[in-house]
Simulated assay, not measured.
Amino acid sequence: MKIDVWVLGKMKNFAKIAEEYMKMLSRFVDIDLLELGHESIEDESLLRKDAMKVLKMLRDDDYLVLLDEHGTSYDSISFANHLSELLCKRNRIVYLVGGPMGVDESVKARANERLSLSRMTLTHRLAVVVLLEQLFRSFKILNNERYHY
């Protein structure tokens, strides 16, 4: 089982926090965080270039979860159970965090699922940190470890 977290953008000053979560997660799962950068935050027509980059990197059997404010919301226990089901059925789960302008429709069409971390809008950097925290919490739940701390 493998999890990739791809972000269209750079983590900048959030990178250190993300690295801490990646280190904690590595005892549970093979996980990578990949900063893909993005073409532009001012020109929506360049979203297509970002999309082509993402779609080219995906394998046919990858399960793509797009972070989207209109996606499915979970509480932590439900998210852990959903993650457990996915890990049993898939070789690689890719979580994609869009950039400041979102993602192209072609990426939305390819997504197997859309996940909402909050009804509030989050920056892509903060969304990555929240996602990593919830993934870590999920593995703690699935391993019957204390997850309130």
Score class of each variant (00 low, 15 high):
Ala18His: 09
Lys89Gly: 04
Asn91Phe: 02
Arg59Cys: 08
Glu145Tyr: 05
Ser26Gly: 04
Tyr21Met: 01
Arg27Ala: 10
Met1Tyr: 03
Ile141Val: 12
Ser26Leu: 06
Leu34Trp: 11
Lys23Glu: 09
Met101His: 06
Leu46Met: 12
Val107Ile: 13
Leu34Ile: 15
Leu132Gln: 05
Lys89Asn: 13
Leu86Phe: 06
Ile77Cys: 02
Glu145Pro: 02
Cys88Asp: 14
Tyr95Gly: 05
Asp60Trp: 07
Lys2Asp: 02
Lys89Met: 08
Leu117Thr: 07
Leu115Glu: 08
Ala127Thr: 03
Met24Asp: 13
Arg119Asn: 14
Met1Cys: 03
Asp68Gln: 10
Tyr21Ile: 00
Leu87Tyr: 02
Ser45Phe: 08
Leu58Asn: 10
Leu36Asp: 05
Leu66Glu: 07
Ser116Asp: 07
Glu42Leu: 13
Phe28Ile: 11
Lys89Leu: 09
Ser26Tyr: 01
Met24Lys: 14
Ile31Tyr: 01
Leu64Ile: 00
Leu122Gln: 15
Val128Asn: 04
Asp43Gln: 06
Ser118Ile: 10
Val130Leu: 10
Glu35Cys: 05
Ser45Trp: 06
Asn13Asp: 13
Met11Trp: 05
Leu33Cys: 14
Ser26Thr: 03
Pro100Ile: 03
Leu115Gly: 07
Arg92Glu: 01
His38Gly: 10
Val129Glu: 07
Ala18Pro: 11
Asp61Gly: 03
Glu35Phe: 00
Leu83His: 04
Gly102Cys: 08
Leu135Lys: 09
Leu122Asn: 08
Tyr95Met: 02
Ala15Gln: 14
Val94Trp: 00
Glu42Phe: 12
Glu145His: 09
Arg90Cys: 10
Tyr95Lys: 03
Ala18Asp: 14
Gly99Pro: 09
Ser26Pro: 05
Asp43Ala: 00
Leu83Asp: 07
Leu8Ser: 10
Arg27Gln: 14
Arg137Leu: 05
Arg110Asn: 05
Leu8Trp: 03
Phe79Met: 12
Lys140Gln: 12
Leu8Ala: 12
His148Ser: 06
Ser84Thr: 12
Tyr21Glu: 07
Asp32Thr: 13
Arg59Gly: 11
Tyr147Asn: 12
Glu69Gly: 13
Met24Glu: 10
Phe28Tyr: 15
Leu55Ser: 11
Arg137Phe: 01
Val129Phe: 05
His82Asp: 12
Met1Ala: 08
Thr123Ser: 15
Val65Glu: 03
Ala127Ile: 03
Glu113Asn: 02
Val97Glu: 02
Ser45Arg: 15
Phe139Met: 04
Leu36Ala: 09
Glu113Cys: 03
Asp62Gly: 10
Glu133Tyr: 02
Val5Glu: 00
Arg146Glu: 15
Ala80Phe: 01
Pro100Val: 06
Asp75Ile: 13
Leu47Gly: 08
Ser45Lys: 15
Phe28Trp: 12
Arg146Phe: 01
Asn81Ile: 07
Lys108Pro: 03
